[in-house]
Amino acid sequence: MIPFILRRLIQIIPVIIGVTLATFLLTWLIPGDPTNVLLGPDASEEARERLRQSLGLDRSMVAQYLIYMSNLLSGNLGQSLSFSRPVADVLVSRMANTALLAFAAIVLASVAGVAAGTWAALRPGSLRDRGLTIVVLFLNSMPSFWLGLVLILIFGLHLRLLPVSGMPPSGAGILSLAAHMILPTITLAAWSLASIARMTRSAVLEVINNDFIRTARSRGLSEWRIVLFHVLPNAIPAVLTVIGMQMGFLFSGAVLTETVFSWPGIGLAMFQAIAIRDIPLIQGGILMLALIFVLINLIVDVLYVYFNPKIKLN
């Protein structure tokens, strides 16, 4: 197991270099002059030049990348143009909020998705199975911002049951926080929930037709025990892959959801940064999301091996 993890970690290095290269190139690919944004269109050419020098924008591309990398390694992601604070500070302070939301969403999507998928697969072709297929299709084809707006409309404006925007101040208590989280969590989880349910359904169907399930039945085990201890452990690896991918999407999908619900996370910050072309923050944000994606994939791979003893040998 340890050599396996080490090997995977080594394989990650080129991926990370690629990501830094891509984020770095963003500066060159995004149209428009950042000095324009910072100083306004009426600024003098002199002032622009001074700003370019202070930001290092006048050096060669290679030099800029090397500077960028060395800064990166020392934890310096640059200065956010819009927040006027170091990018690292902005990201770290907002990371917790995004992680909270994403974590809640993935737990909801996984638990509900696996349960629904299994429940449907136990009676393939039945009413509940076909019902689930329709719900999955519905959730998968609905844009999250639209779902968010509909939820706000129903639960916030008409029924006035739940808060629709922002985070409560830190002293407001756990209940208030939970209430604020319900709608954004559902919005963020919907798409993943549907995908996980669909994957679980097909994985369970595949496992349940195996001989060893018949063996378990022929030995007098009860149906719920068979599902819990024989079917699910064998179906989980396939589902895990989807959950891992969904988690990556959840962090990036948070951009829209956080914007709709004014949730003060990385997503909202990124949205604002893109609007005013705050390139250091965009770079930092993308880098962070990419790292999270890679890290989650690593964890999924390790879990995959854990659940699938056959891979351990190789």
Binding site: D211, F212, R214, T215, P233, N234, N308, K310
Partner: peptide, 12 residues
């Protein structure tokens, strides 16, 4: 059963 490999739970 016939095929013992598929008749045993591979993950247990």
């Amino acid at each position: 059963s016939q095929d013992a490999l598929s008749a045993l739970n591979p993950a247990m």
